[in-house]
């Protein structure tokens, strides 16, 4: 790579000069062009600051973390046998279908005040993110949800996560759900 690079080509390489991944020849060429074009130093400074800011940025929301690992580990034996669907997962699918019906029924039966609710308002209420113990039956889960006036908003996800909205303060429900034998994990979504 002995041909000299144009200013434009060097500008394209600057982010990789900043992150230190250019090979020796490219690096040398970039430095040579930088000497000829002082205006590129401003680009360089901008990119360095941008890198600092990007690295300091928190990730959007919480990653699945240890909970995700537990769910993954539960799936491993099944994933090694791609053609077979274990009875547990078949049951899980049936349970999920039932829960969907329950969710629909609860939403239809719950008295909803007339008029519209703003989507923005709904998002202000923290949701509960929950996973159930694998042995929990659909009837038990249904009872738990009804007892606590909980509605499934989303799920199940591949991880088995459900998002629930609560008619009462979700913070107060958190502790009682954590103590339930049916619940594997529960946390507040913000």
């Amino acid at each position: 790579m002995n041909e000299s690079l144009s200013r434009e080509q060097v500008e394209m390489l600057l982010p990789y000069y900043v992150n230190g991944t250019l090979d020796a020849a490219e690096k040398q060429q970039v430095e040579s062009v930088l000497k000829q074009h002082p205006s590129l130093w401003d680009e360089l400074t901008f990119l360095r600051k941008l890198q600092t800011e990007v690295q300091a940025m928190p990730a959007a929301g919480n990653s699945p973390g240890e909970l995700g690992l537990r769910r993954l580990q539960q799936q491993l034996p099944a994933s090694s046998q791609p053609k077979q669907i274990s009875p547990r997962w078949r049951w899980a699918a049936v349970a999920a279908a039932f829960l969907l019906v329950v969710q629909t029924s609860v939403m239809m039966l719950t008295s909803v005040p007339g008029g519209y609710q703003q989507a923005g308002e709904q998002q202000q209420t923290p949701l509960l993110i929950i996973t159930f113990e694998p042995q929990a039956t659909e009837a038990e889960i249904r009872q738990l949800l009804l007892q606590n006036q909980l509605t499934i908003v989303e799920g199940p996800s591949v991880l088995g996560l459900y998002k629930l909205s609560a008619a009462t303060e979700p913070e107060t429900l958190l502790q009682s759900l954590q103590q339930s034998d049916l619940v594997e994990s529960v946390q507040l979504n913000r």
Binding site: G61, G68, L72, Q75, G155, S157, V158, L159, L161, K163
Partner: peptide
């Protein structure tokens, strides 16, 4: 973010 968490799981599977 919900789907992103699912995708993380799929990647590790």
């Amino acid at each position: 973010q919900f789907e992103a968490a699912d995708l993380v799981n799929e990647v590790f599977l």
